[in-house]
Amino acid sequence: MAVSEYNQEMEFFVDMQRCIGCHACEMACAECETNGQESMIHVHYIDRAVSVQTTVQVCMHCDEPACATVCPADAITKDNFGVVHSANTSRCIGCSNCVLACPFGVPIKFEESELMMKCNMCYDRTSAGKKPMCATVCPSQALYYGTREEIRKRRPESVPVNTFKFGELEVKTKVKIMMPKGATKIIVD
């Protein structure tokens, strides 16, 4: 219905190592109109017993989203820009398959309303050519939204990587993680 002004040159870059756990992104995320004042971002300690390091997680918008594939209600869709949208409210049956199948632990199930919600990269903003809320407020640029050229200048020692290995499974995503130069994938096992 709305004419999209989605700028495909703009990309989302995440660097969890830069997260300082300030929760500013959480507050900003709740301002996104597609979420109904709920924050869809995850900020928490990685392992509080041994470190004060925090991590931040947005939806990685997989090329082949596991959440959509295991959804029994066909409620999750990916659009032409590669954005994996939050569950269609009329279809979602609140089964939590997506919550448990997402390899990045992103979707959230709201028990009372029997509904899954997730980050859709602030579609109300990005489809109008603006930046996602979280990336506009992140003080340490753990979350960064810009062009490939901009990130190359800012992080000359890092490269954006969008290939993840979970055991034998390889997952490719729209959102990139900043890795040391030379890295081509991130191995989670």
């Binding site: 969890m16 995850h42 928490h44 990685i46 991590t55 448990l100 632990g105 991130i186 989670v188 096992d189």
Partner: peptide, 11 residues
């Protein structure tokens, strides 16, 4: 889900 996020951060 939290465990998965932490596993990614550790990696």
């Amino acid at each position: 889900p939290e465990g998965k996020r932490s596993a990614l951060a550790k990696a």
